[in-house]
Simulated assay, not measured.
Amino acid sequence: MDTPQLIATCWTTSGPARPGDPSEVSPHSAFARIDAVARGGWAGLGLAHEDLDVVRRTTGLRAVADHARAAGLEHVEVELVTDWWCEDGAWRDRWSMLLEAAEVFGSPVVKAGTAFGPAWTDLEPLVEPLRRLGSEAADHGTRVALEPLPFAAVSSLPAGADLVRRVDHPAVGLAVDHWHVVRAGTGLDELARALTPEQVFQVELDDADAAPVGTLFEDTRDRRRYCGEGAQDVPGFLRVLHDLGYRGPWGVEILSEEHRAVDLDTGLRRARETALACFEAAFGA
């Protein structure tokens, strides 16, 4: 296959900022992150809602879009909308901001999450709200990628794929993160059977130990491994998505104490080199 386009997803460039902290704002400016990603040979980067809110209130989204374009980056991803299944409320402001950012950056997808906690046995209450979200995204020239998490209401890719089928909207699909697939206990054969090509809007790469360390949230936030440095079959995961027909960019999402302890350039170099090594193992040089 051709050299893959790799995107440094939001947490891969966020430095010491962590999901779930009182503030998730990165100490690295969006401009510094763009420059580091461009130096490292990446095709793009991701920015999360708290960082985007800072950008919007200071330099403005257009300045960041222009800087990314001048740096030669093709992709700027935005995330994350939650609470979209609730009646209109505070989440609406975040959603409007994400849609605005997606329009300015030309982002083809906005990532969506669901409530942390036990898996919902009945996903029917999510169907109409997710369809509405897709319609609103389409009105702004973008789409919604639902990310199933093993510690959330939609807890697996098979469950997410079933929900997306029921939603039946062309602007609603899935974000397929390798860590979440592994920790949900979804095997590669099951993953291949569950997904259809048109459902896969985003793919994110990482690795994991053989068993979780601490809670699942602690494991995902603090113990992810660089691709090929854990105990999971990253090349096999790549082959499944490629065989399914996925030809988009590949996100690399590294969250770990180890990654946060190194400087931005060093972490980005290791994240990219290890991901590319897995592509070589999967498809040859």
Rank of each mutant, 00 (worst) to 15 (best):
M1K: 09
D2G: 13
Q5K: 13
Q5D: 14
A8S: 04
T9I: 11
C10H: 07
C10T: 12
W11K: 06
T13L: 14
S14G: 05
G15W: 00
G20R: 10
G20T: 10
D21R: 07
D21L: 08
P22A: 11
H28T: 10
H28I: 07
R33W: 03
I34N: 06
D35I: 11
A36C: 11
A36G: 07
R39I: 12
W42S: 05
L45C: 15
L45W: 13
A48M: 10
H49G: 07
D51A: 06
D53W: 12
R57N: 11
G60V: 04
G60R: 03
R62T: 12
V64I: 09
A65P: 02
A65C: 08
A65T: 05
H67Y: 15
H67N: 15
G72T: 00
H75E: 06
V76Y: 08
E77G: 08
E77K: 07
V81W: 00
D83R: 05
D83I: 04
W84L: 08
W85C: 13
C86N: 15
E87C: 15
W91Y: 11
D93L: 15
W95L: 01
L98A: 04
L99P: 10
A101L: 12
A112H: 02
A115E: 14
F116S: 13
F116I: 14
G117R: 04
G117P: 02
W120V: 13
W120E: 13
T121G: 11
T121N: 10
P125V: 10
V127E: 11
V127P: 07
P129H: 12
L130Q: 01
R132V: 14
L133T: 12
G134P: 11
G134M: 12
E136F: 12
A137H: 12
A138S: 15
D139I: 13
D139C: 15
G141S: 09
V144D: 05
V144R: 03
E147G: 06
L149H: 08
P150K: 03
A152V: 00
S156Y: 00
L157E: 01
L157H: 02
A159N: 06
A159P: 04
A161D: 09
L163N: 00
R166D: 01
V176G: 00
H178N: 07
H178E: 09
W179G: 00
W179C: 03
W179N: 02
W179Q: 03
H180I: 03
H180K: 06
H180R: 06
H180N: 06
V182C: 12
R183K: 11
T186M: 08
T186F: 09
L188A: 07
A192N: 05
A192H: 06
T196C: 06
P197W: 08
P197V: 07
V203F: 01
D207H: 08
D209N: 13
D209Q: 13
D222C: 13
Y226G: 01
Y226P: 01
G228L: 00
A231W: 03
G236A: 10
F237T: 05
V240L: 14
L241M: 12
H242A: 09
H242L: 08
W250L: 06
L255M: 15
E257G: 15
E258V: 12
H259A: 04
R260H: 07
A261L: 08
V262N: 04
L264G: 06
L264N: 09
D265R: 11
G267H: 01
A271F: 00
F279W: 03
E280F: 09
E280C: 11
A282M: 05
